[in-house]
Amino acid sequence: MLFIKSIIVAAFFSLLFAGSSIAAPADEAFVQQKANEALAILRDDSLDPAAKTARFADYVDNVTDVPRVARFVLGKYARGADPQKLASFTEVFREYASGVYESQLGNFGGETLKVLGSQDRKPGDSVVTSVISGGKIEEPIKVNWRIRTRNGQQTVLDVQIFGIWLALQQRNEITSVIANHGGDIEAAIDVLREKVAKGNYGEKDAKAASH
């Protein structure tokens, strides 16, 4: 009788959770901790801009799996790519991605981030939802984090802010550049090198220019 009851209870819960995603509490804690670290770097006024950029680049290296994200943004062009070109691309992409993330998050500092919840996409692949509020911003801003876990090590694969996944955005642009140059990764390397040399990543620069 107890056995039948257990089956009924199990069936009930499997129905209850069918189609819904399970939370990933370890990933939520990871995001909370890493976001606090990022905000601490951004609000550290003892650092000059160059030192802040260097510190942020180290931070990005530490929390994201740059080679994996670099392969992702290359899309179909990553498969079978020349290893030397792939290494060159990863190197310049590291600098570019760090600049973009610093630029996007550079306007924050006095704000706080609160994790709201998470969804498990599949084992080792989850999305953590958070909200940034307080400080200078009038309305809370929702930020989603795509987290990958392998061998107990968590890394950030992508961040969605203002409704846009940044790595996905970069993939659509980079693959377009490569497609326009006959599938040559070198074209994307050149464009990113130029971008990094100019140090122009958008958000912070545009706001500075228009006010």
């Binding site: 846009i164 996905l168 377009s176 550049v177 620069d205």
Partner: peptide, 22 residues
């Protein structure tokens, strides 16, 4: 829009991607 233009690597692809995501 200025930020999008500054940040973009390929302005056409950037607008298309941003539009589709938004």
């Amino acid at each position: 829009i200025e930020a999008l233009r500054n940040a973009s690597i390929d302005e056409y692809a950037s607008l298309k991607s941003a539009y589709e995501q938004l």
